[in-house]
């Protein structure tokens, strides 16, 4: 495991903790910023396929651990989101704050749709996983607001590990 992977995992851990603690502190029950989704999004847009897929699965797994949902679902959801973003958002640049926020907002809506579909398949409309458009929209807004921070942190990490002008071209245009 390289130091970069470890650092990204650390970011995921911190995001998990923040995601668990702050909604609790502020009493956010229906909607919250999905920080791990921002990590998955960043990785899907900016990283190599294998490492980003592995890290996204790890992010999904961490989300799973902190949300007490059935084993495997969040990991699967994270992977599905990674695949969708990877396939649809190729070539999108996410350098600026507003741009990354907009991408995260859209990705969060897609993620919510995927989650609704997946949860409907595995457990039709259980009360605790009910999905509402208003909550999804609010979550997407909050995720969009938080995404520039996550993107900024991950970009700083990448700046130390990915040489400028070298390596394989990345989907988001970065090298």
């Amino acid at each position: 495991m390289t130091l970069r992977v470890a650092l990204v995992l650390l970011v995921c851990l911190v995001a998990t903790v923040v995601e668990s603690v702050f909604p609790f502190l502020f009493g956010l029950t229906r909607a919250r910023a999905d920080l791990l989704l921002s990590v998955v999004l960043y990785l899907a847009l900016n990283d190599q396929a294998i490492s980003s897929a592995g890290l996204s699965a790890a992010a999904g797994y961490l989300g799973e651990l902190s949300s007490a949902t059935p084993t495997g679902l969040y990991t699967l959801l994270a992977m599905l989101t990674w695949v969708v973003v990877r396939l649809t958002a190729r070539g999108l640049r996410s350098d600026g704050g507003p741009l990354s926020a907009a991408i995260a907002f859209g990705a969060s809506l897609v993620h919510s749709l995927l989650a609704a579909g997946l949860f409907f398949l595995v457990a039709p409309a259980p009360a605790e996983l009910s999905w509402g458009p208003a909550a999804a929209l609010l979550s997407a807004l909050m995720t969009g607001a938080a995404a520039p921070v996550i993107f900024g942190v991950l970009r700083r990490i990448d700046a130390h590990f990915i040489p400028v002008g070298g390596g394989e071209p990345l989907p988001g245009g970065r090298r």
Partner: peptide, 20 residues
């Protein structure tokens, strides 16, 4: 890459099917 991603998709699904 494709195999890896497919495995990462299949693994949690399998885990869910078995344990979830």
């Amino acid at each position: 890459e494709l195999v890896f991603v497919a495995a990462l998709l299949a693994a949690p699904l399998a885990v869910y099917m078995v344990r979830g």
